[in-house]
């Protein structure tokens, strides 16, 4: 047992002087020494790391070339797959385009639309409304250019997209006006969320959001439904240019505004069903005169 300990220590090169003497006393001492010394003859042959890594690297490169060839094939297959997917997609789109329902109103024209979920839309004059009817069950999304009044039955999210921003509701009554000169959302019942310029505005009952290129305003209204439904338009502090734009949605006339200042502000209302009264409603407060020439209205200062 003691012998074993000494030998183990010797194998670890940890013998002290006395222990070394004791080790040398052992009968088998020369045998151990010889065994240990002769072991070197069985040393593994030289291993050339350099040539090993070199040949490894060339193998790796070779394989990578093969892989890149395979990759080219992948691209080829990916190309085919992409074409198939694209084809499928186009087919699908065509299908959904075929499900695209579109409404367009002409000047002075309005339209009452009942959506698949029994929500109602009143589309004002000179406006377009699009939606994908076969996706309506999953996605209640509309695109509006112009003005429309919505009475939405409660259900999933109902979204109105306009060039200015989006209006989201769950079920409520609201009006969206998206015209060239500005954007207006009015909430008559419930609440709606308006996403505009990366901001979100929440409108409660009787709230109105007014947006034009210069400002965003929120104000209270008292009316129960939009004026246009009662066939007139009320404008507040709008430039004459904007007023005439609004006018053109209801009357098929052109204006000749040479010689007058179109940036003057107008506040007032005009009816949609009587051209003469409508023209007077605008010109009288601004102290202008008008002259009809076929379909052109010439405006001039008094």
């Amino acid at each position: 047992m003691k012998e074993e300990k000494v030998i183990k220590k010797w194998l670890k090169n940890e013998l002290s002087k006395e222990e070394l003497e004791a080790f040398k006393e052992l009968d088998a001492y020369p045998t151990y020494i010889k065994l240990s010394e002769q072991a070197r003859h069985f040393k593994a042959p030289q291993f050339d790391e350099q040539s090993s890594i070199k040949s490894l690297k060339s193998q790796i490169e070779f394989k990578q070339q093969g892989a890149s060839k395979r990759k080219k094939m992948y691209y080829y297959y990916a190309g085919i797959a992409a074409i198939l997917v694209l084809g499928f997609f186009i087919f699908n789109t065509i299908e959904s385009v075929s499900g695209l329902t579109s409404f367009e109103t002409k000047i002075a024209d309005t339209e009452h639309i009942i959506l698949p979920d029994q929500s109602e839309v009143d589309l004002n004059a000179s406006s377009t409304l699009n939606y994908v009817s076969n996706q309506w069950d999953t996605k209640r999304t509309l695109e509006l250019d112009g003005e429309a009044y919505f009475e939405v039955t409660s259900g999933s999210k109902f979204t109105v997209n306009t060039t200015y921003g989006t209006v989201e509701v769950l079920g409520t009554k609201f009006n969206v006006k998206s015209r060239t000169y500005g954007f207006e959302v009015t909430c008559y019942e419930g609440s709606v969320a308006v996403a505009l310029n990366d901001k979100e505005f929440v409108l409660k009952q009787n709230d109105q959001l007014l947006y034009d290129s210069s400002s965003i305003q929120k104000k209270k209204i008292e009316k129960k439904s939009p004026d246009w439904k009662n066939k007139y338009t009320t404008l507040k502090s709008r430039t004459l240019e904007q007023v005439l734009e609004e006018f053109s949605y209801y009357y098929d006339v052109d204006f000749d505004v040479k010689g007058i200042n179109t940036s003057r502000l107008y506040t007032g209302s005009f009816p949609h069903n009587n051209l003469e009264i409508a023209l007077k409603s605008i010109t009288l407060p601004l102290e202008l005169t008008y002259q009809m020439n076929d379909k052109t209205v010439i405006l001039s200062n008094k």
Partner: peptide, 28 residues
């Protein structure tokens, strides 16, 4: 990793199985 272990790996295979099994190839 190659620098650290290639030689030891080679020796390991050599001592375990001898030269007949081409330890260098096994390392590769």
């Amino acid at each position: 990793l190659h620098q650290k272990y290639a030689k030891d790996l080679h020796d390991f295979i050599y001592y375990k199985f001898g030269s007949a099994y081409n330890p260098k190839d096994k390392v590769q």
